[in-house]
Write a protein that binds this DNA or RNA. Structure first.
Lengths: 244, 244
DNA sequence: GGACCAAAGTGGTCTTGACCACTCGTTGAC
DNA sequence: GTCAACGAGTGGTCAAGACCACTTTGGTCC
């Protein structure tokens, strides 16, 4: 074996390889390429599958990114996401980034049992399902699926979605004001579809947000499911013990 | 090849295996064992490393859990974690679970540059570093590292930590009341040490919380770093747009 | 100088196989 | 009836190898 001390008393080969690569990262900048997998495997005296398993981990953790046919690179650090109901656009603008949004799909279909329950409507009622990408400086940061009862929006054209936020449309068309909501957050990993839309590897760590929003009249006006890249985001909350 | 259709137009073998296993999960209860890896690999017509890669994913996602030498089992569903400053004990009690806490280490050492900055003290000032496990029904849910300036607590005995919360000690000894804090949250994966303390596999998805708490006088009184199991937790927030 | 093509180099997927370490169940001895 | 030992079966780690698919680079031709 070359490149690594033996494993006596120091854990697995994967652990040792991981330490070696993390050490290499100390001397690299964001965007720098690592040596190829085959070279690293030879240099560190391990098999390529063993090396790949370690790089898989570092990719999942957001430290590295891989490009098929090109190489393995040092990844960019994460963005903090304040856990408030400010809009994505406001957040990005505050950070000096150029926010963008792109509707990739919208369709109308029957709610079904589960969604009907979430939106407090009949399962046969229709809902708009709008799939949007949230971008910052032309890079996709999140995918959002908005589900809204059709009766709140009536007929809808793609341009209306691009020009207005959903909340604006609610106010203009129905005189409805948003009052409150409940949001759940859990760590997840990207599916193949999500990975493709986000431009990250499959099964990368990500935040899964699910939010149900209610109007001042207590009516559920939306259910939103979002996947935020775990390699570019972390949450920040301000805590007020006495206010809750 | 037996067990799987060929991969034409349907993605990789790993994707097909994943679908098969998810289908199997529909007919199993929490705690049920899956067939052994060798059996599944044979049944599904793939190699054992290929099968293991898929099971690795499902374990990371919290759907399965593995026990070395015993088998692979269906995992328990996740707990929602309200994102407020209520104590862990209150949360667990509200859920009908028996909260517990166990100090596994506590020591006093110089703050150093980074921690000194976080706590707004001199790097040579001493801080208590208290490592605790948070348990629910005797199962470890989180690890917590509390860093507090020694001058706020003076000399400290392990029993005092077990019998009182830190906030109680602050009030009793210094007349200090907690006012506010800032907390960051990001998805992470467990290190070997964290995995051992939590009883989960290495590199499992988890929440990493870091919180800096301030007294009414604007003084930083603690920095806490916590790792919560991603297979047992999700966050829930209530949202109030106009209050922020 | 630009376009195109081929080759080399990259990451991605998968197989076969070996061996280690842990757990559980069975059997035999006391 | 209990306990210990052993064997079988489990998950865990690793290697060697093959082949696929993508990207980059260099050379050639116009």
């Amino acid at each position: 074996m070359t490149g690594l001390a033996n494993t006596n008393g120091r854990g697995s080969k994967q652990a040792l390889v991981r330490d070696e690569i993390l050490g290499m990262l100390d001397d690299l900048q964001v965007g720098d390429a690592l040596p190829s997998e085959r070279r690293l495997a030879t240099d560190l005296g391990v098999s390529r599958p063993t090396l790949r398993a370690v790089i898989d981990e570092l990719v999942r953790e957001g430290l590295l990114l891989r490009r098929h046919g090109s190489g393995t690179y040092v990844a960019e650090p994460k963005i903090a996401l304040p856990l408030t109901m400010t809009s994505f656009s406001e957040d990005m603008t505050r950070r000096g980034m150029r926010p963008g949004s792109r509707v990739v799909d919208f369709q109308c279909l029957a709610a079904g049992a589960k969604l009907g329950q979430r939106l407090q409507i009949s399962p046969v009622d229709e809902v708009w399902v709008i799939t949007r990408l949230r971008l910052a400086d032309d890079e996709t940061m999140a995918i959002e699926w908005l589900h809204a009862p059709r009766r709140l929006l009536g007929d809808l054209r793609r341009e209306e979605l691009s020009d207005h936020s959903y909340y604006e449309l609610l106010r203009e068309r129905q005189g409805i004001t948003i009052a409150s909501g409940v949001q759940t957050i859990e760590p997840t990993v990207t599916s193949p579809e999500e990975a493709e839309l986000l431009g990250v590897p499959v099964h990368s760590p990500a935040f899964l947000f699910e939010r149900t929003t209610t109007s001042e009249d207590g009516e559920v006006v939306e259910f939103v499911r979002s996947v935020y890249r775990g390699d570019r985001y972390r949450l920040v909350t301000e805590l007020r013990p006495a206010l809750r």
